[in-house]
Design a binder for these strands. Sequence first.
DNA 1: GTTCGACGTGTCTCTTCATACATGTCAAGT
DNA 2: ACTTGACATGTATGAAGAGACACGTCGAAC
Lengths: 178, 178
Amino acid sequence: MSLRYALLGLLAGEPASGYDLTQRFEKQLGLIWPAKHPQIYGELNKLADAGLIEIDSEGPRGRKVYRITDAGRAEAKRWLTEEPVDRTARLEPLLRSLFYWLMDPEDLRAHLAAEAAYYRQAAAGFEQFAADKDGGVYGDSPQVKSMRVTIEAGVKLYEALADWAEWAQTVPPAEPQD
Amino acid sequence: MSLRYALLGLLAGEPASGYDLTQRFEKQLGLIWPAKHPQIYGELNKLADAGLIEIDSEGPRGRKVYRITDAGRAEAKRWLTEEPVDRTARLEPLLRSLFYWLMDPEDLRAHLAAEAAYYRQAAAGFEQFAADKDGGVYGDSPQVKSMRVTIEAGVKLYEALADWAEWAQTVPPAEPQD
DNA sequence: GTTCGACGTGTCTCTTCATACATGTCAAGT
DNA sequence: ACTTGACATGTATGAAGAGACACGTCGAAC
């Protein structure tokens, strides 16, 4: 259900086509809410049928730019204020860590090093983004201010994971099991 | 696919029934990898068909205790060392934060306070768990050592989110939009 | 003129997961 | 004797999501 609101929220910021939105998911939203084009196009059609968005203009190659409607804006706001937050997290890397005792120590060392590197780099990516925002590269519209808050969550989250993976490397390995 | 390995990993630690495993997901794993009983029972039957687990004993009320097989242990190890880590994260609260600019400031304040409280409490839960482990309540088997590592991730992660939600409350609200 | 890469929208199929429904057992308290 | 709550395992249905397949367009480089 969240993808529906993600699209609605993005369109509340500015009109966009399915292709535009797919790019944004790929480049910006992938780390917090991934979505592929089949799902996006499908959901856009459902949103249009429901009258929450409408076609703003059509362009070359069948491009359809959508715009949010008043009903859509109201629905987005309703979601934000009335729908309970879904705090479900599904973190495969943490699930794996529960079974580290099954791994050979050398494999585990390599694994944790890769984990730390990945998370540190992801955090750095968010930080770069934050620096650009703070530097005014994107202006200071309300949307940009909210995005800055989201990015801060990304920084803190991925740094926490990087710190964890580094810390885990200092924990003495258990005897290997078979 | 991960649930399959979650069950395999848990059974590598000790034999358990579907009911036992459901309880563990509810009480311990819910915050990092939720799973409900229909999925668990279904997956257990598939694992048994594949010869990765087998029935250890049967008890009252149709209770079936499963035990991991050698093939299952090998498969779990293969997963841990050969399968690429899936670092996909899908965090609805962070997605929401992207659209905070659509909310009325007073609603947002209340929302962030609730977020901070929730994450702080979740972190405290993990910390309590960690303290028990460190206090030796659960012994110091290799499984417990791994779980201690996982718990540390939980602590760091949820504290990061709590810090974020508290920090976000200090960010001056944007002008309300309609 | 052709080729190539980005642009652009869609369908089909399969897996995963959530929710509701369905069924029955056993122990303990009243 | 009866009721209640925990124990215990399943099925049915539908939504969400991933990956493959499918089709067509436009601009730029060669």
